[in-house]
Nucleic acid binder design. Structure first.
Lengths: 163, 163
DNA sequence: GATAATGATTACAGATCTGAACGATTGTCA
DNA sequence: TGACAATCGTTCAGATCTGTAATCATTATC
């Protein structure tokens, strides 16, 4: 039952899981190329998006969402602060935590990021008719929900863990 | 035109490009966890698949397909050879190149890998009815073709390049 | 008011990546 | 034939990246 020529041929192209992984890596790379023109990495772009969705989060929460250890988040946020994109503000209620927010310059860049993301979306889905495009989004959201992925948060800014 | 509450809300969950990237990372991580039980990394699993699809390729070709520099491919192949999964054979016509092939042990492991991949596919697409599952595969293949991705080859075993 | 817990940060050691070089072999061309 | 360039596999050193654990300030517990 392992040599059916008909059953095995789809395996050469992979099922949905393989295609998602393959396309995901491809799409992520293209996005990285695009945002590089704004001097941003995908993780930096992700932070901008996260800060506008829910401002005032602590660094630990943000690091958790981005899938990076807090120790790595510090120099990561440093760079964005030095560029004037984000602001660290001490929380008056708990002076241990920093509340991170976007600066005006950060919001400006986020707007340009939106333009880039829109162009990227269209370039990726060129092959699809508008109704198919919506169909795909629907299917992907159903999977994302069932897999309990946080909407709008991309935890993939880490290397694949083997354990 | 940038503050339509209706138009902006889907952006919070992301379009198809974001979902593909998010789900791709998630699915790739789950696959990594699964194949780890076979003492394999995703890249190693990919090499096994590639060798059965088209045996006798040179290391340089394989490295190219996997998206890693030849210098990194060498220790990568070393490990698999030491485990007796692949074989390096000098090409009689061109003694510079090695032709890599699967050993019996490698093919055996590849069979177990197929079982793992099948279970993974079902787990990923739990949320979808059988016809939706096929629909999704169809849409993803159309995109993959249009984006000129090599069928069955996952070039994402590299870090995201910023340039 | 002493002790434990938490957030941010730093220090450090280990893994990992990259690009340039090297030896061996083959193609090219006078 | 013989010099020269190109290719394949490989190695190596420098740079980069990554996670763990220790440190400091602040807050919760009791």
């Amino acid at each position: 039952m392992s040599t059916n020529r008909e059953k095995e041929s789809p395996a050469f192209r992979g099922g949905a899981a393989f295609l998602l992984s393959q396309l995901g890596a491809h799409v992520a790379q293209q996005f990285a190329d695009r945002v590089a023109e704004l001097d941003l990495t995908p993780a930096q772009a992700g932070l901008l998006r996260m800060l506008v969705q829910a401002p005032g989060r602590s660094q630990r929460e943000l690091a958790e969402m981005l899938g990076m250890p807090p120790s790595r988040f510090v120099p990561f946020a440093d760079g964005m602060q030095e560029r004037g994109l984000i602001e660290r503000r001490r929380n008056p209620d708990d002076r241990r935590v920093y509340s991170l927010t976007l600066t005006d310059k950060g919001m400006e860049l986020l707007a340009r990021l939106g333009t880039v993301a829109k162009a990227h979306e269209e370039q990726v889905c060129q092959a699809l008719a508008p109704d198919e495009h919506q169909q795909l989004i629907g299917l992907l959201r159903r999977i994302a929900d069932q897999q309990q992925l946080t909407p709008g948060v991309h935890g993939g800014y880490r290397r694949l863990r083997s354990g």
